[in-house]
């Protein structure tokens, strides 16, 4: 069994996350898509730790999991805050930084 299959899976997972970020407007789905992209990177590091036969890539993978946890806490707090203000989960409603039409 070679690592090409794992590389293919990493590419597919990252792309599915990217598609979710681009095309969905539900804030929860956007958040979970970002998490999925980070998890794909974690899988890539874990694969590299086996192909290169070193534990360093595993440590990087572990640190990425910690970053995923930090991102989850911040993103969920932001979603709750936005929902309290807007009463909607639509990311189209967050327009306070939008440029006015010229």
């Amino acid at each position: 069994m070679s690592a090409h299959l794992f590389f293919l899976l990493v590419a597919l997972l990252f792309s599915i996350g990217l598609v979710g970020v681009i095309s969905r407007r539900n804030l929860f789905v956007v958040y979970m898509s970002v998490e999925l992209m980070l998890s794909a990177i974690t899988l890539l590091f874990a694969t590299l730790s086996q192909t290169l036969n070193s534990a360093n890539a595993s440590v990087m993978s572990l640190l990425t999991i910690a970053i995923i946890a930090a991102e989850a806490a911040l993103f969920l707090a932001m979603i709750i805050h936005l929902y309290r203000i807007n009463r909607t989960l639509d990311s189209e409603q967050c327009t306070s930084l939008k440029q006015e039409a010229l």
């Binding site: 690592a3 792309s15 192909t51």
Partner: peptide, 18 residues
């Protein structure tokens, strides 16, 4: 982008030593 990522990753060493 998927194809690009996959082709770039395939240049890495790919034998799982285990």
């Amino acid at each position: 982008i998927t194809v690009l990522i996959y082709t770039q990753l395939n240049t890495l060493p790919a034998t799982l030593k285990g």
